[in-house]
Design a protein around this nucleic acid. Structure first.
Lengths: 110, 110
DNA sequence: CCACCATATCGACCGCCATCGATATGATAA
DNA sequence: TTATCATATCGATGGCGGTCGATATGGTGG
């Protein structure tokens, strides 16, 4: 029995070392993920029933003040990880899978 | 001919939101990557000819002081991303692919 | 033993950022 | 318009962390 195994995940993509600019940009991207509140926000949106979540529901789940939650949501949105959609006075957020994939691909190094 | 296709990469792994402990641990892991010097160190080791690099060669490549480079190498090693091997007075480093994979898997969220 | 080299540790400085209370903005509803 | 609600912005504060010079550690060679 022939068995064909495709492993698209673990192929090293990094062929030469990062230069300063690339390293700065990547570090800035990972810095967005380097906060527990932002990671919980991202996971809450990612696992939301319809793939989207209202900011109004999120404050209670997180356990931080409303300005702090708003601050972190803006950082995630500015980084492109979350897409914001304003509907009336409510703000809804979705995960941008492509943007997440960029960071995931950057870790295909070994 | 039987064809077995394995796609370990793009399946969402995150099924429910992260709790506080998981978020703290993940954030600490990403914080290690959230620095350009450490990313350049990681990429230098990952793309080194034999998969390993001597700390003695690294200081000149990075453009930071020796204490700073040593500091960042220790952070990468403590996080498990780099494995340190002392040979005489020299310290050699290798990437731990499994540890990198843990972070990559954490981004399989959408 | 001593001199030298690679690396690690220490101490201090400085800038960035997470956090919150107060307040502003902007939209809906009465 | 006025009241109310959701969200964003502002300003201040406290702590964390990147950086380097100085110094310690520890191994090598003479």
């Amino acid at each position: 029995m022939d068995v064909k195994v495709i492993e698209p995940c673990c192929e090293p993509v990094l062929v030469e070392a990062l230069d300063h600019t690339e390293a700065d940009e990547l570090a800035a991207a990972f810095k967005v993920l380097a906060d527990p509140v932002r990671l919980r926000l991202l996971s809450l949106v990612a696992t939301a029933p319809d793939g989207e979540l209202c900011a109004c529901d999120v404050v209670d789940m997180i356990g931080r003040s409303q300005p702090t939650v708003s601050h972190h949501l803006s950082i995630l949105a500015d980084a492109g990880l979350l897409a914001r959609e304003q509907r009336g006075r409510w703000a809804y957020f979705r995960v941008d899978p492509d943007r997440v994939a960029v960071l995931r691909d950057a870790l295909m190094i070994a």
